[in-house]
Amino acid sequence: MGPVPATGTRRHTLTLPAPDGVAAAARLLVQGGLVAFPTETVYGLGADATNGAAVAAIYAAKGRPSFNPLIVHVPDIAALDGIATLGPEARALAAAFWPGPLTMVLPLAAQAPLSSLVTAGLQTVAVRIPGTELARDLLRAVGRPVAAPSANPSGRVSATRADHVLSGLSGRIDAVLDGGPCSVGVESTILRPDPSVLLREGGVPAEAIEAVLGRRLSRDTTPGRVQAPGQLASHYAPGARVRLNRAARAADGVMLGFGPVAGDLSLSAQGDLAEAAANLFALLIEADATARDRGLPHIDVAPIPDVGLGRAINDRLARAAAPRPDQA
């Protein structure tokens, strides 16, 4: 699978080792550049969320549909003042899970300084405080909200290492801040609070949110109804066709195992969902390269228990397996 074509000027992409590269990365962002940076979930492709031209460059670099909103990253809850309005449930969830892999879709504050491209025309904004000190150091150094979708061509597998970013976006962005592999490995959980509705499974299990709220969450994860990032039906897709819930290797596919189901690669030989989540995108990329090298059309994936982080993994796999126009 080659790079997805994108419009925009070709750029020389720097690799900035962390933590020394934080200051240089922040300068690039303030100047309107595009910088990929690691969070606990995946690498994000950052731009100054108040700069319309910079945000437009994200869409161009990723080849991203303009109707798909972006997540705004801030270093602390005080930085949301003037950007979003937090109700009682949002404040309780922020106290429990921020910093961390939870995104909340909140009412947009009056006169919020964000580019309208960030919200894709909605009257809400998706926000989070990332869980790694490195990401928060960068955000503090920038001093502005940073819009950051996953740092990969739109619809393709998310990046959990700097080399994944460069494979998909080298020449389209200004720099990648290399902070090593991401620890969680799947994107943040997204919900709309007050009252809370789950929009996307992710790094915070729904059960943990329900424990804070003291009630069951309602869910609206319908593919194609875009209220928040990551709700497109076809997403996270490698070049090979993905087949789910496969119990054994097949001659025409590369097998991703889990637990007792062996494979060419294993998400977690011990059946550990946290390990599987952390490995998911990196192994999808590796399986896709293996399938291409072997001339095989499929990636087969063992069954994943649909509980806790397993629901987030299965959500990403279902979107990876969804039909795409280029696979008709």
Rank of each mutant, 00 (worst) to 15 (best):
Y43E: 04
E133I: 02
P38D: 10
V74H: 04
E89T: 02
T124A: 12
L80K: 08
P5E: 06
I58S: 02
G82A: 14
L122M: 12
Q31R: 15
A53N: 11
V22H: 04
A61R: 05
T7F: 01
A6R: 08
G2A: 04
I58Q: 08
A60W: 00
T50P: 00
R10D: 01
I77Q: 06
L16S: 07
P145K: 05
E133W: 00
L16R: 10
A79E: 11
P17G: 15
L134C: 08
T103H: 08
V127Q: 10
T85R: 08
V125Y: 04
V72P: 05
G143T: 14
D81I: 01
T41C: 06
R91E: 10
A135M: 10
T39I: 07
D81F: 01
S115Q: 04
Y59N: 07
A18E: 12
M104C: 05
G143M: 13
G33H: 12
Q123S: 08
T124F: 03
M104K: 07
I77K: 07
Q111F: 03
A6Y: 00
G8H: 15
L34Q: 00
A26F: 07
I71E: 06
L86F: 01
E40C: 11
V74Y: 06
I77M: 04
A126Q: 02
H73G: 03
L86Q: 05
L16D: 09
T41V: 13
G21T: 11
R91W: 00
R11H: 12
E89Y: 00
I71W: 04
G32I: 03
D76F: 03
R144M: 07
R91G: 02
A23F: 02
